[in-house]
Design a protein around this nucleic acid. Sequence first.
DNA 1: CCAGACGTTGTT
DNA 2: GTCTGG
DNA 3: CCAGACGTTGTT
DNA 4: GTCTGG
Length: 252
Amino acid sequence: MCFNMSLVTDRLALEGEFGAVFEQFPSYSGGSTPSIEYYNRSGFSHPLWPVVTVQDPGNFSSAHWGLVPSWVKDRESALRLQDMTLNARGESIWEKPSFRSAAAHAQRCLIPVDGFFEPHEHEGKSYPFYIHREGKLFALAGIYDRWVGPQTGREYLSFSIITADAAGLIDTIHNKKHRMPLILTAQQYPRWLDSDLSQEQVRQMLGDDRLPELFAHPVSKQLYSRTPAALEPSVQKQCLTGIDAVDRIALR
DNA sequence: CCAGACGTTGTT
DNA sequence: GTCTGG
DNA sequence: CCAGACGTTGTT
DNA sequence: GTCTGG
């Protein structure tokens, strides 16, 4: 599960990490202060995100979070479906109508993040955690598709986060659904972007429960609100809940 | 045969 | 576009 | 886990 | 009885 992500990095750091340049992404290219501040972005607002695709690995493409498959007929259906395609279960992307075209055509992408959020349940209440690598960039694995708006005729690029069974620290945190986004480190970027990657090889990556070094701490439940405060840097900051069972997880 | 789904896992 | 449910 | 289906087909 | 959908 992954409905909230973070990306607070300037253009140069992104270009260095992913070996791609910005020419397509409006808020990055041409601006004098080419950075964005996505301390917390909810998938349900379908934000534009810079991604690196198999088909154009040398550039950052701008894509909306929430995959809209090419066969969707109208804007209303697209919006409805988009709330349900923030994640794609990695195990079933080859069968699901919404994802199989993307899966069949190796439309995979890297989604740069500084971190993401997962809920921890304790005595019936949900405590959001921020999961990160101490400011080090990394990527989540995604698939994407293109949709052409019937009214506008314009192409709409959009993606889903690939999920797998949770492992390690994330399994401890996400104790209800036990799912996590597929996390990629720099060494794995070329592999995910290899257009010849077989279904078997993708399944292997999904089943690999080794995680890179991760850090996590509980954050304010403000994260769940739909106020401007939920977008502020403070949502990422350490915020001890005072509940031992929850705080203890952060000590890793 | 046609209509409808097509998806994943949140919270206040 | 393609499958499922009725 | 429990509720509900359990079936087929050309219609305006 | 057993499968599917929620």
